[in-house]
Write a protein that binds this DNA or RNA. Sequence first.
DNA 1: TACAGATATTTAGTATTACTGACTACCGTT
DNA 2: AACGGTAGTCAGTAATACTAAATATCTGTA
Lengths: 106, 106
Amino acid sequence: MENITEMLKGVLEGCVLEIISRGETYGYEITQHLRELGFTDVVEGTVYTITMRLEKHNLVDIEKKPSTKGPPRKFYTLNVAGQEKLENFWAKWNFVSSKLNELKTN
Amino acid sequence: MENITEMLKGVLEGCVLEIISRGETYGYEITQHLRELGFTDVVEGTVYTITMRLEKHNLVDIEKKPSTKGPPRKFYTLNVAGQEKLENFWAKWNFVSSKLNELKTN
DNA sequence: TACAGATATTTAGTATTACTGACTACCGTT
DNA sequence: AACGGTAGTCAGTAATACTAAATATCTGTA
C-alpha cells in the first residue's frame, strides 16, 4: 500500500484520544498500540507531537511514574474536555465516513 | 458540527477523483457536487487547488469547452494514471476506515 | 445601456498536521 | 563496558485544505 500519511491527518489524534480513553497510558505504549492496530509506520516522534498537542490544549491529565524497564513514563488520562473532544471526533468520523461510503457505492 | 477540515485532508482529492471518474466534469460542478454530498463548506478555491494538482501530476485529461451560462469550462477526465490513483485511494480508504471502525467498536 | 447576479477559473498566502531524523536518558543483560 | 529495548523530546520539512481576493463571461432586468 502506498503512503497513507495524508489520510491519517485528522484521524490519528482521534485514535490517540480513543486509546487514552481506554485507560491511563503513555506515549511509547500508545505507539505500540497503533502499530498493532495496523498503522505499522507510526513512530514515537509522531505520537509525541500529538500528545504534546493534547497537553497544550488541556485535553489530558498527566502523571509521571517510574518504570521498571527504563526512564520514567508520562501517563495520560482524558479530562472532561478530552472526552468531549473524543466524542466530537467520532461524530465527525461518522459523518465523513458515511459520506465517503455513500460516494463509493452510489 | 465542528470543523472537519483536517479530516478531509487526504480524502477530498479522492472524492474529486471519484466524481471525475463518473464522467467528464469541471471544477465548479465538482464543487456543487461535493456540497450536495454534504461537504457544504467546500468552496471553489479548494477544489481548484485539487484539480490543479491533478493536472500537475498528470492524472487527468483536459478539454476546454464553451458554456452557455458563463465563461469557458475546463472539463476533466481521468486518464489511466488517474484511474490507478483512484483505485489506490479506495484501497487506502478501506484500510484506514476498517482500522478506525475496529478501534471504535473494540 | 447599465448593472446585478450566477457561472467559472486562478492564485498568493496561511494554518494544521504527520513525518524525518536526530538527540538524550534509563535500565538489564551479556 | 557495550548494547538493545524502553522512554521522551524537538527542530525542521512536506503535504494539504482553506482564506480571500481578483478576473472573466453570460443572462435577465430596470
